[in-house]
Simulated assay, not measured.
Amino acid sequence: MEQITITAKIQIAATETDKVLLDETMSVYRNACNYVSDYVFHTHDLKQFSLNKVLYSTLREKFGLKSQMAQSVLKTVIARYKTILENQNEWIKPSFKKPQYDLVWNRDYSLTQNRFSINTLNGRVKLSYFADGMSKYFDHTIYKFGTAKLVNKHGKYYLHIPVTYDVEESNISDICNVVGIDRGINFVVATYDSKHKSGFVSGKAIKQKRANYSKLRKELQMRRTASSRRRIKAIGGRENRWMRDINHQVSKALVKNNPKHTLFVLEDLSGIRNATERVKTKDRYVSVSWSFYDLEQKLIYKAKQNQSSVIKVDPRYTSQCCPCCGHVEKSNRNKKIHLFTCKNCGYKSNDDRIGAMNLYRMGIDYLADSQVPDTVVTE
């Protein structure tokens, strides 16, 4: 068995009185986090026990936090520092800018199918919430709730709850279908599967919309006003949410349209940013900021939910190698018209489809010897 964690997001139905109380609690919690963060930065102490011994009374008296809230503040700050140290390997003081509140399951918050109960500065309050899609998670023999986060977005309050559950691991021997997935700009994805069927998701409309966002952003940058900067930030958030939603839909369709125990084969594009820095300046926005990674992550966890799996392989030559005769040549591919023409055997097809076909073949090779192929080329 393998554990998987998803984030369930629910909207709280808060009255004006509730909003005042939640805002106050989140603001004080944020201030307490900054206070503890400053102390940790100067002492480099990340032990819950010793921090609790020194700071607990101050958190209770100065900030008016309840006992469990004080403990949550310490855990929040410790976790943030550990993340920074792991990623940056140096002591950088985190700043908690937005009001927030991390809630421990069954201590700071509880959830039933009708009510959301939360610990606040003025005691515990019970609130209604929009429960669409949440009912299945209340079987706590299967689903476990973790430390949630309360956030305020444009006056609306949301609870982000990590939900952990077990799924059966997909073994190589169970694989019944292989899908090669080529990601790109002309097509968001091009696929080729074990039934020798190809599929395409056009990126034309997406590319055009992103170009419109880029144009609007440049116009606002030229104004150099406070309101234009706020607008740029808002546009960025809107564009990211829109693109994440598209990636959600694409990854969902890929998993839904294939059976359980499918092996999805992707190019390892971890170096894609460096590789695309050499493109023309006018094309750099689309190439560099394209959300390959987000789509990859969504596909990985959705595949696990369907007892399927994802492997990443070396991307070299996947669009230059002929899937029929194996001949590799850079001039096989005409990028301008998206056409692949093998100089050896004459096989022709869309260049993105060729990439998907080669990835499919690498998936077949992986099933044969249980090792991820280094490259599509076979000597």
Rank of each mutant, 00 (worst) to 15 (best):
N186I: 07
L150G: 11
A148K: 01
K149C: 15
D139E: 05
I118D: 01
Y165H: 07
T141R: 11
G133N: 08
T191R: 10
N122D: 14
N122V: 08
I175E: 00
D108I: 01
K126S: 13
F116C: 02
L111I: 04
I142F: 14
S194H: 00
M134Y: 09
F145Q: 00
F116M: 03
H196D: 01
P162T: 09
H154R: 15
V151S: 13
F138K: 03
G123Y: 11
L121T: 03
M134C: 05
L111M: 07
N119H: 10
I185N: 11
G155Q: 01
H196T: 00
V178L: 01
K195N: 14
S198E: 15
Y165K: 01
S128Q: 14
F116I: 01
N177Y: 11
L159F: 06
L127M: 09
N152V: 04
S194E: 03
H196V: 00
V151G: 09
Y137W: 14
A131P: 12
K149F: 13
T112N: 04
S110K: 07
L127H: 05
N114Y: 13
Y129M: 04
N152G: 07
R115L: 14
A131K: 15
K149N: 15
T112Q: 04
A190G: 13
N171L: 15
V167W: 11
A148S: 12
G180V: 00
N152Q: 07
L150P: 10
T141C: 08
F130T: 06
I181C: 10
T141D: 15
S135H: 15
S170F: 04
H140V: 06
V179H: 12
S117P: 05
N186F: 11
V167G: 10
A148F: 03
N122G: 13
V125M: 05
S110F: 07
V151T: 09
K195M: 10
D182A: 13
L159M: 09
E168H: 13
D166H: 12
E168Y: 14
V179A: 10
N186S: 12
S135K: 14
F145M: 01
I161P: 02
Y157L: 04
L150I: 08
M134S: 09
I118K: 02
H196E: 08
F138T: 07
F116N: 00
G133A: 06
L159H: 08
I172P: 03
Y192F: 15
P162G: 13
K153V: 07
R115G: 11
L127P: 05
G123I: 02
A190N: 10
G180Q: 02
S128E: 13
T191L: 10
N119C: 11
V151L: 14
S128H: 12
V178S: 01
G133Q: 03
T191A: 10
T112E: 05
D108K: 07
S128R: 12
H154C: 14
E168F: 13
I118C: 06
S198M: 15
K195C: 09
F116Y: 07
G155C: 04
K156H: 08
V188D: 08
L159T: 00
S198R: 11
G123E: 09
Y109V: 01
S173Y: 05
V189Y: 08
G146M: 10
I142V: 15
A190M: 07
H154G: 13
F138C: 05
D182Y: 12
K156E: 09
L159D: 05
L111P: 06
E169H: 08
T147M: 12
V125A: 06
L150H: 06
I175W: 04
L127T: 02
T147S: 14
K126H: 15
